[in-house]
Amino acid sequence: MLVAARAVVTAKVGAAGAQEWEDRWHAEAGFRRHIRVLTAVWGAGFALDAVVRVVLAQTLPIDAVPLVTGLQWVVVLGVLFGFHVLYSGSRAGSAVERARPDRRPRPRARHRGALPAHGVAGR
């Protein structure tokens, strides 16, 4: 998954971002675990898809197989992408966002009615 994701990261944030992913792979056990879980889930999803397709091809009438397996493909991709987004979003920020070399800390939201940092409102 890291190899496949490298192209996406490079396209989104550039070569520096892809290099940061490489560096994180070597330095952060949590990052490696995250990529490995995603890889395992995608691999298991496609393996299960293949088994179900064989069973469907053996049991359904021949005319029904293309329609059913086409719909199955949409469902499998939807579930895998849904898991991917939920799992990646459950981490502290997006891995692609963290890989941006020009990232700046996001400003913290102030409570309503709070004074500005310099202490006087309206200046």
Score class of each variant (00 low, 15 high):
Leu38His: 08
Leu38Phe: 01
Ala40Pro: 03
Val41Phe: 11
Val41Asn: 03
Trp42Cys: 03
Trp42Glu: 08
Ala44Glu: 01
Ala44Asp: 00
Ala44Thr: 04
Ala44Val: 08
Ala44Tyr: 02
Ala44Ile: 06
Ala44Cys: 09
Ala44Leu: 11
Gly45Ser: 01
Phe46Met: 08
Ala47Tyr: 02
Ala47Arg: 03
Ala47Asp: 02
Ala47Leu: 15
Ala47Gln: 01
Leu48Met: 03
Leu48Thr: 11
Asp49Asn: 10
Ala50Met: 13
Ala50Ile: 11
Ala50Glu: 04
Val52Asp: 07
Arg53Tyr: 06
Val54Cys: 11
Val54Gly: 04
Val55Gln: 02
Val55Asp: 00
Val55Arg: 02
Leu56Tyr: 08
Leu56Pro: 05
Leu56Trp: 11
Ala57Arg: 13
Ala57His: 05
Ala57Val: 01
Ala57Ile: 00
Ala57Lys: 11
Gln58Ile: 06
Gln58Gly: 15
Gln58Ser: 14
Thr59His: 11
Thr59Trp: 14
Thr59Gln: 14
Leu60Pro: 07
Leu60Gln: 05
Leu60Ile: 07
Pro61Leu: 12
Pro61Asn: 12
Asp63Asn: 08
Asp63Ala: 14
Asp63His: 08
Asp63Tyr: 07
Val65Pro: 02
Pro66Asp: 13
Pro66Arg: 12
Pro66His: 09
Leu67Gly: 12
Leu67Gln: 06
Val68Ala: 09
Thr69Arg: 03
Gly70Tyr: 08
Leu71Gln: 10
Gln72Gly: 14
Gln72Leu: 15
Gln72Trp: 06
Trp73Asn: 13
Val74His: 00
Val75Asn: 06
Val76Glu: 04
Leu77Asn: 12
Leu77Val: 11
Leu77Cys: 05
Leu77Lys: 06
Gly78Phe: 10
Gly78Gln: 06
Val79Trp: 10
Val79Leu: 15
Leu80Asn: 04
Phe81Pro: 01
Phe81Leu: 14
Gly82Leu: 11
Gly82Ala: 14
Phe83Trp: 14
Phe83Asp: 13
Phe83Asn: 10
His84Asp: 08
His84Val: 00
Val85Ile: 15
Tyr87Asn: 10
Ser88Asn: 07
Gly89Thr: 08
Ser90Lys: 06
Ala92Leu: 00
Gly93Phe: 05
Ser94Phe: 03
Ser94His: 07
Ala95Trp: 09
Val96Pro: 00
Val96Arg: 03
Glu97Met: 00
Arg98Met: 02
Arg98Ser: 07
Arg98Leu: 06
Ala99Gln: 05
Arg100Phe: 00
Arg100His: 08
Pro101Leu: 04
Pro101Asp: 02
Pro101Cys: 02
Pro101Gln: 03
Asp102Ser: 09
Asp102Asn: 12
Arg103Met: 03
Arg103Pro: 12
Arg103Gln: 05
Arg104His: 04
Arg104Cys: 04
Pro105Ser: 04
Pro105Met: 01
Pro105Phe: 07
Arg106Tyr: 06
Arg106Glu: 14
Pro107Trp: 12
Pro107Glu: 12
Arg108Cys: 03
Arg108His: 13
Arg110Ala: 12
